[in-house]
């Protein structure tokens, strides 16, 4: 990661120090693939948790259905919506990752994911917790795209909390 562009919150400027910039860091093949063939896409009729997510800035709309059992374990999750490759791939990968997890484990995953895409560039992602989700680590080099990756996570959290509101990333 380190040889890629460095972004500082203060200057808002990429390519500090003339680093090498590679778009493949953001659009890894896994992301392109999940965008083209999203997993767990559609409605889950038997779901017991639902929420909508909206990113008014870019128009992304997301609906998430989650089915949990009596112990609070996530049995199934599906999503529907419209968005960029980052948001579709993120939702696709998230729904894969959350299945079989308890709500508490989902929260751990949420925190690790949020840290990965928002922390300082040199902070390491928790690969042990995140596994395949680390393909989205490149997002943090693109401040305007972080919301795309994280909207589905906020939407799932809203769904699991049974809140009636529309999830946003703020």
């Amino acid at each position: 990661m380190l040889y890629f562009a460095l972004w500082t919150k203060h200057s808002g400027c990429l390519l500090k120090g003339g680093g090498v910039f590679d778009l493949r860091d953001l659009y890894q093949q896994v992301i392109v693939d999940h965008n083209k063939n999203p997993r767990n896409y559609g409605i889950l009729a038997e779901a017991n948790h639902h929420a909508d997510g909206h990113n008014p800035l870019c128009g992304d709309q997301l609906h998430i259905d989650i089915l949990t059992d009596d112990e609070g374990k996530i049995i199934d999750a599906r999503f529907e919506g419209e968005g960029c490759a980052i948001s579709v791939a993120s939702a696709s990968l998230m729904t894969e990752a959350m299945k079989g997890k308890s709500v508490a484990e989902f929260e751990t995953l949420f925190d690790a994911f949020q840290h990965m895409v928002t922390a300082d560039l040199d902070a390491m992602a928790n690969e042990e917790v995140l596994g395949k989700l680390t393909v989205l680590a490149g997002v943090k080099e693109f401040p305007s795209r972080i919301k795309c990756a994280i909207l589905c996570w906020h939407t799932s959290r809203t769904a699991l909390a049974d809140k009636k509101e529309v999830a946003v990333t703020e």
Binding site: F21, Y27, C58, G83, C84, A85, I86, F142, S144, R145
Partner: peptide
Amino acid sequence: GVHPHDLGTIVDAQGVAIRAGHHCAM
């Protein structure tokens, strides 16, 4: 097959600045 926001980011990587979005005209 390519969302406007992805287009915006990809062309930006080539140094080309365009706008992607609803242009305040929903």
